[in-house]
């Protein structure tokens, strides 16, 4: 009968509304307590997103083809000289890049929202010798965002020899977190 149908409808609506309310409440609380602590995220084998291929120019004006890094572990660091956490993590990156050079691990910076003059003055002052892509308009960043959510600067990715992103660090890198990711990319893949 229609009346019975109506009652069913009411109960279905009630359940749906309560579920919706619960889902929204959960997402609200998650939104407010969003973790901002830097940590690293390691992709499980088989679920590693492919790093995009791109061609760009370095801060000094020479061409950089990301495809030419294939076969090596690459640490890709998104940074800007205007960004305090980037300046803080830079000495760690400088040390690790020297330390892993003999292991064949390459480092590549992606300098975003910046001018080459400011960026080069900074890399000189902190002793970073690896190249950086000049990405003032975040074009390279956008390409990488399809694979890994680069929500803020700095973000550091470790790309394995096959061109897949092994894991990433959100926020400033620490020595232990980045060396863990590099070892993982070097040993298992």
């Amino acid at each position: 009968m229609f009346r019975a149908k109506r009652r069913t409808v009411v109960s279905v609506a009630a359940v749906a509304a309560v579920l919706l309310a619960a889902a929204l409440a959960v997402s609200l609380t998650q939104g407010s307590s969003k973790a901002t602590d830097p940590g690293y995220i390691l992709f499980p084998a088989g679920q590693q997103p492919s790093a995009p291929d791109f061609t760009a120019t370095s801060l000094t004006g020479s061409p950089i083809k990301f495809a030419s890094y294939r076969g090596r572990v690459v640490v890709v660091n998104f940074w800007g000289s205007w960004c305090n956490p980037c300046r803080s993590e830079a000495p760690t990156l400088a040390v690790l890049s020297e330390q892993y050079r003999s292991h064949g691990v390459a480092f590549l910076g992606v300098d975003v929202g910046d001018t080459p003059a400011n960026a080069l003055a900074f890399t000189r002052s902190v002793g970073i010798t690896y190249p950086s892509v000049n990405d003032p308009a975040y074009v390279v960043t956008q390409a990488f965002s399809q694979a890994v959510p680069i929500t803020s600067t700095p973000t550091t990715l470790v790309v394995g020899p096959s061109g897949h992103v092994v894991g990433y660090i959100y926020g400033g890198v620490t020595y232990s977190a980045l060396s863990t990711l590099i070892s993982d990319a070097t040993v298992t893949r």
Binding site: G113, Q142, P149, I150, T151, T155
Partner: peptide, 25 residues
């Protein structure tokens, strides 16, 4: 003279909806 790509890191302020992630831009 400057440009930007619509990606979260490039934006000064970003207020996403509850179910929006950076890759949805």
């Amino acid at each position: 003279g400057q440009g930007f790509a619509d990606t979260t890191a490039a934006l000064d302020e970003f207020h996403p909806g509850r179910l929006v992630s950076g890759s949805d831009l």
